[in-house]
Design a protein around this nucleic acid. Structure first.
Lengths: 106, 106
DNA sequence: CAGAATCCGCCGCGATACTG
DNA sequence: CAGTATCGCGGCGGATTCTG
């Protein structure tokens, strides 16, 4: 049961789910991720990315070019989290959408 | 994709996962849950339970007896979250235990 | 472009005390 | 036994500024 705590700890963070979701099956640049998430600051994003990297679920590749270029992708370990995301999305689709029929603020 | 946010919001909380996990397939009393989780205070537990109840994933039944008795159980909606918990547990079992062999930083 | 470093506000959570 | 009410802290996340 404490296995859940381990997983929860990795995913605990406001943007972790979205980052992983966005990296699903693709490699993304730092600016792409930031642009996708939109609302968060660079400091927060970098922090979340570092944590995910430290937990071994995403990989960070730096290209030594003049305009800095850094790409992020899921590791093997990170891909194992996709089923979790899929289950969460399925649940949200079943129960979440109907609640925002005429209400779509924010 | 915002469906994930919906699910995340329901599960966001330090003890939500454990509470749902503990209620999986069973009805439990308030004191049972508290005893199971151990470390948290009554105030925190009640708050988490109220939130879960408000989100419609657990049901609360009060028995009007002299020593108060309240039982909690998963609703149909709550049972739909079990796959998420199972996926998280599977991931944690695969990666969590082996990682804590000799490494215990912070 | 992709950070690092710093400061700050919020609130989630815990501790405590009190109640029916 | 199962709460409610209040207070306070710690830590996450956000905003800003500065770098290579």
């Amino acid at each position: 049961m404490y296995a859940i705590a381990f997983t929860q700890n990795i995913l605990y963070g406001r943007w972790k789910y979205f980052i992983l979701w966005y990296l699903k099956g693709t490699t993304r640049r730092y600016s792409d991720i930031k642009n996708f998430l939109g609302d968060l600051s660079q400091g927060s994003l970098t922090k979340q990315l570092r944590e995910l990297e430290n937990d071994g679920v995403i990989a960070r590749e730096v290209f030594p070019v003049v305009p800095p270029k850094v790409e992020y992708s899921l590791t093997e370990k990170g891909m194992k989290l996709i089923p979790v995301l899929d289950m969460m999305e399925a649940f949200g689709k079943e129960y979440g959408e109907q609640a925002k029929s005429t209400n779509d603020n924010e």
